[in-house]
Simulated scan of single mutants.
Amino acid sequence: MKPQDVLKEKSSLWIFGYGSLVWKPDFAYKGRKVGHIKGYKRRFWHGDDFYRGDKEKPGRVVTLVEDQEACTWGVAYEVTGSQAEDSLQYLNMREVVLGGYMMETVEFIPKEKGQCPVLALVYIATSDNPIYLGPAPHGEIAAQIALCRGSTGLNIEYLVRLAEFMRLHCPDVEDEHLFSIEAAALNIFSRLW
């Protein structure tokens, strides 16, 4: 679905973030809600050769992988009017052009009781992307993250901020993939520096 098609259908829309968007959306929005989507698990399987890595040492960032039993926690941002157009232009450059992500529509379920689910746009990197790295043992992913740096900073900062978000906003959710990679990467990082 193209951004202009999304905008024709609604005066406002929701955008779901599950990686760096949870702490750094970099676009104006009307409101934000913590919550989750079902049918996907978050994995550090996507390469990043710009923001958190480079061409010689690509970093690892998260993408979503279909899994009917899973859910992924994050933040949905409501954007309206010109915010919607501006945010989609920004995200399409950041996620699609530079990152190789595609856009999907998902049902977002807010954490706060009594709030209705909303349809949200989400960006997902797939295995047919040239910088998709795919699965690897947690220790290998952690070592790669501990060593990489890109134009916006250290790859480990991305990992730690995502883990901090989960601990602060979703303290009852156990994200084994995220937390085991964080523990291993911090161990490696502390020995290097």
Rank of each mutant, 00 (worst) to 15 (best):
I15W: 04
I15F: 05
I15S: 07
F16N: 12
L21K: 10
V22C: 08
W23E: 05
W23H: 02
P25A: 08
D26L: 15
D26V: 09
A28F: 03
A28E: 10
Y29E: 00
Y29P: 01
K30V: 04
K33S: 14
V34Y: 06
V34S: 12
G35R: 13
H36F: 13
H36S: 15
I37T: 14
I37R: 13
K38C: 12
G39C: 08
G39H: 07
K41V: 12
K41R: 15
K41Q: 12
R42E: 07
R42G: 14
F44K: 14
F44R: 15
G47Q: 07
F50I: 15
F50V: 15
F50Q: 10
Y51W: 15
R52A: 03
D54G: 13
D54S: 10
K55L: 14
E56R: 13
E56Y: 03
E56W: 02
K57W: 09
P58F: 06
V61N: 06
V61Q: 10
V61Y: 07
L64M: 11
V65D: 01
E66R: 15
E66C: 00
Q68S: 15
Q68H: 04
E69H: 12
E69F: 05
E69D: 12
T72F: 01
G74W: 04
V75M: 11
V75D: 03
A76V: 06
Y77L: 01
E78Q: 14
T80K: 02
T80P: 00
Q83E: 14
D86W: 00
Q89E: 11
Q89W: 01
Q89D: 10
N92Q: 06
N92R: 05
E95D: 03
V97F: 06
L98Y: 10
L98M: 15
G100A: 11
M102P: 02
M103C: 11
E104Q: 13
V106I: 09
E107H: 04
E107T: 14
F108H: 01
F108N: 06
I109S: 09
I109R: 10
K111L: 12
K111D: 08
K113Y: 01
K113N: 09
G114F: 04
G114S: 11
P117W: 02
L119A: 09
A120T: 04
A120R: 03
L121C: 05
L121F: 01
L121Q: 14
V122K: 06
V122H: 03
Y123H: 13
A125C: 13
